[in-house]
Amino acid sequence: MTDPLVLAALLAWGTLVGLDLVSVAQAMIARPFVAGAVAGMLLGDPAAGLRVGVLMELFALDVLPIGAARYPDYGPATVAATVLAAGSPWELSLGLAATIGLLVSVLGGWSLQRLRRLNAEAVQRHAAALAAGESAAIRRLQYAGIARDTLRSAFLTAAGLAAAWVADRWLLLDRRTAVALTLVVLGAGLAAALGGALRSAGRSPRRRWLAAGLVLGLALAVLL
């Protein structure tokens, strides 16, 4: 965690992940289980990255990123949460790490709203050039928008890393509280994913497919 090279790599990864959410590529490296897996590898603890990433993914499954909807930014948040969980037994660290991750993701959602407002203000400033059909103005707006999102993602990742460092240093939980937090956040994550799936299914035949999947998954989980 204190190795400057690892910190720089995490900051770069968190920034890329933040950009991927909306602005550039949308290659899905912003999905928490992808972001967490890579962050875990950078920290030398890929298993911790997967544990944190999959848990945060359950919350991300609750989100439908439609149009102007406000939604949390789970990518950089997962990078920060992985930093907190790496190197310690996951059943003790996962709850606190995910809590910090969820708080950072809310901050990320707010920062996305702010970014969209700044982009709108830039469009208003360039209204005359846009009305005159200047291609250069469109390019300037596009590059400036991406630059703003790069800064947003970098700041969000840095804030997340700082929060993880503070939590690691000062938020010391006893064993029972730490395990209880892990179980509570896991239960909440499962509720979020199931709630999202139920909402997407509505009253369509998809609900029956969801039920069939649950039965199959449960049977396999019991058998294995």
Partner: peptide, 9 residues
């Protein structure tokens, strides 16, 4: 629906 349901348990 099927795959999310399958994955959760």
């Amino acid at each position: 629906g099927l795959l999310i349901g399958f994955a959760l348990p």
